[in-house]
């Protein structure tokens, strides 16, 4: 029996992308601006989220979806403590959130009452970038102690993201981190990236990030 070739050319993550688009539509209908925060463990995702809530909670309603590989609610509890709704999604060991898990998280929230939705993706830099979850912006939190060579080694992470926060800039005097070298690498990979240098510890640079976010939330309300 002879074999026959069938040409396909179909994106492998197409099903995930389609569901992500449906989620995005749902969020748009509810006039919610949503961001997907990705980073290695410890770079400061939770710190950025808490800082952001602190700065914006007087002006808007913020909800948080916490992705974790296990059923630990430490991060979610910190958000709830600030008076904002948080949903915990346990990925059951999976290294990233995907659109299916994201949909569960979104459906567990009362969308009518939210202006900004923040998703803390699983702490891992390698995988989440491949899986769209239906947010408007993909945000990576890098941090000074991770080193200035990460864009050169993990090229795929900095593609397809919209915002990069370089956190822990208060540690720059103590760590050999060539800011220009880091920025060159980032720029080579992604020309359209918004770049913010911040310190969650001192608060330096946070206002710029908050201004950007505030504009985005406002634009999401106005464009309908």
């Amino acid at each position: 029996m002879s074999t026959q070739k069938v040409q396909i050319v179909e994106k492998i993550l197409d099903a995930n992308d389609q569901l992500a688009n449906q989620i995005l539509k749902k969020l748009n209908d509810a006039e919610i601006f949503a961001i997907n925060i990705m980073a290695s463990p410890g770079s400061g995702k939770t710190s950025v989220i808490l800082k952001t809530i602190e700065k914006l909670k007087g002006e808007m309603n913020i909800a948080v979806i916490e992705g974790d590989t296990a059923a630990v609610t430490i991060d979610a509890d910190k958000v709830t403590a600030l008076g904002m709704p948080a949903v915990q999604i346990n990925t059951g060991g999976q290294c990233h959130l995907d659109a299916v898990l994201m949909e569960q998280g979104v459906d567990a929230l009362d969308l009518s009452d939210i202006d900004l939705l923040i998703v803390e993706n699983v702490g891992n830099l390698i995988c989440p970038a491949s899986f769209k979850i239906g947010t408007h912006s993909n945000v990576v939190v890098a941090s000074v102690p991770e080193g200035d060579d990460k864009p050169y080694k993990y090229t795929n992470i900095y593609r397809g993201i919209d915002v990069l926060l370089l956190n822990k800039t208060d540690l720059l005097p103590y760590i050999d981190f060539r800011l220009d070298y880091f920025k060159d690498g980032i720029h080579a990979l992604n020309q359209n990236l918004k770049f913010f240098e911040v310190s969650c510890k001192t608060g330096e640079g946070i206002e710029d990030w908050i201004d950007w976010l505030r504009e985005k939330v406002k634009a999401q309300k106005n464009h309908r």
Binding site: T3, K5, V9, G160, A188
Partner: peptide
């Protein structure tokens, strides 16, 4: 120069299958 721009390398698709009828 480090003023670079990535232009290719993100492909991830199923190209074809070979079958018996």
């Amino acid at each position: 120069s480090m003023r670079l721009k990535v232009i290719k390398g993100e492909e991830f698709w199923l190209d074809s299958i070979e079958i018996e009828r």
